[in-house]
Design a protein around this nucleic acid. Structure first.
Lengths: 113, 113
DNA sequence: ATCAAGGTAAGCCATATAGCTAACTAATAA
DNA sequence: TTATTAGTTAGCTATATGGCTTACCTTGAT
């Protein structure tokens, strides 16, 4: 699976988006996260693994608890893709606009002849 | 499934992202899209359906061919979510920064005492 | 040294996904 | 009117997902 596939797949789950939102406010342990989403620990581990594989989150063990935190550049790839596509789209719309405008001008001239 | 779930899920597939990129350059029929991705028509229909259910794409039938086009506001929801999360994250970092700075100042003062 | 707590591994289950083929429908071209 | 073309529906397969439980391992507290 490609990198962007993993990123967007990570984001496609409400629980994982909530985790990201939560981690944006500071690190948390797996236990904390699981408890506050009313989910069994192993279930939550999977989410954390997905988030790590998409490089949105990183974690390390301190004693027997694993702390998770958001990666600094977490969302830039996704944002980058969206922005680029939007730019292409808007550029095309502008071109269409001016094309239609040109047409209208010609129509106009034609009308006046 | 929630709206954002659907949107990000749509974007989590390379083929669908390619379709979006393609449609940003103008409308296309299902047949066109399928052919240019070397895929059977019915397989492609599923992708188009997913894209429509996530409100990224709309389509209508003209004669016997179905034309697909990007929705004007397609990517704004996804962009919005990303931007907001990023803002939260950066705000927190700034606060941390100034907190550390304050600490450093106090340390400094303390040192001079 | 022992026990509790937090995490991890393994494996079960129901559902969803991404692809396919084959059969059907509806619009167009000959 | 008959073929051809473009979509569509139905159904198959293999794999992935999101949840669970149960058993195990490590670390920290008593």
């Amino acid at each position: 699976m490609a990198y962007l596939d993993r990123v967007f797949h990570s984001l496609s789950d409400g629980t994982r988006r909530a985790v990201i939102a939560q981690l944006a406010n500071g690190p948390a342990s797996i236990g904390d996260l699981a408890q506050c989403h009313h989910m069994a620990l192993p279930s939550f581990m999977k989410h954390v693994r997905v988030l790590e594989e998409s490089e949105l989150v990183m974690s390390r063990k301190v004693g027997r608890v694993r702390m998770c935190e958001l990666r600094p550049d977490a969302l830039t790839a996704a944002q980058g893709w969206l922005e680029q596509e939007r730019r292409v789209w808007e550029t095309r719309l502008n071109q269409l606009d001016s094309f239609v405008e040109t047409l209208a001008e010609k129509e106009d001239k034609h009308g006046r002849e």
